[in-house]
């Protein structure tokens, strides 16, 4: 009857088998060479490539982040500048409008004053003309009246008085 335990005790321990030792070393070296060529080499290469790739990617990301930051700063500055310019334009427009307004008002005022003065001058003229006309009228009327009165009766006394009054009036006129 065979027992498993009997199998396991082997022929073991006894003696170093020189052939085994050579075989172990030679096969291990062959295995090492084959694995290095077909497994570890490509694998390490891939891992290194990935490391490089990741490094590059990180650098690229950092670079683009920096670029984005600069761009955003520039955009902000530009926006601020634009706003300032717009404000300036609005202010200028407002100022111009005010000036224009003032100018129009001034012109209007001047025109009004001029018109008023012209009107006043006209009125004065008319008035003088009217007074002149009236005075002429009054003169002729008084002559008319006087002649009527004189026609009726005139004493020496009255005549003298009349003459004096005329003279006086004439004097006042001057």
């Amino acid at each position: 009857m065979h027992f498993y335990s009997d199998f396991l005790t082997l022929g073991a321990v006894g003696g170093l088998r020189t052939g085994d030792m050579f075989f172990t070393i030679i096969l291990f070296i062959i295995l090492l060479a084959l694995l290095k060529k077909f497994a570890w080499g490509p694998l390490m290469e891939t891992m290194e490539k990935r490391e490089e790739y990741v490094k590059n990617e990180i650098e690229m990301a950092e670079k683009s982040r920096r670029e984005a930051e600069t761009a955003s700063k520039e955009a902000k500055a530009q926006l601020r500048q634009t706003k300032e310019e717009a404000q300036k334009i609005i202010d200028e427009a407002r100022n111009t409008a005010k000036q224009e307004e003032q100018k129009i008002i001034d012109i209007a005022r001047q025109e009004a004053t001029r018109l008023k003065e012209a009107a006043e001058a006209d009125i004065q003229n008319e008035k003088e003309k009217a007074i002149q006309a009236l005075q002429d009228q009054v003169a002729s009327l008084s002559v008319l009246i006087a002649s009527k009165v004189i026609e009726k009766e005139i004493s020496a006394q009255d005549q003298e008085k009349l003459i004096n009054e005329y003279i006086k009036e004439v004097g006042e006129e001057r």
Binding site: G15, R17, T18, G19, L31, L35, F38, A39, L43
Partner: peptide, 27 residues
């Protein structure tokens, strides 16, 4: 002085082949 334990020779070869197959297949 040259002697072999054929069991060891066989097992070492087997181990090497197993490793070779696993590693090459995995890579």
């Amino acid at each position: 002085w040259l002697s072999f334990n054929l069991s060891n020779v066989l097992m070492i070869t087997l181990v090497s082949v197993i490793i070779l197959i696993i590693c090459i297949a995995a890579t």
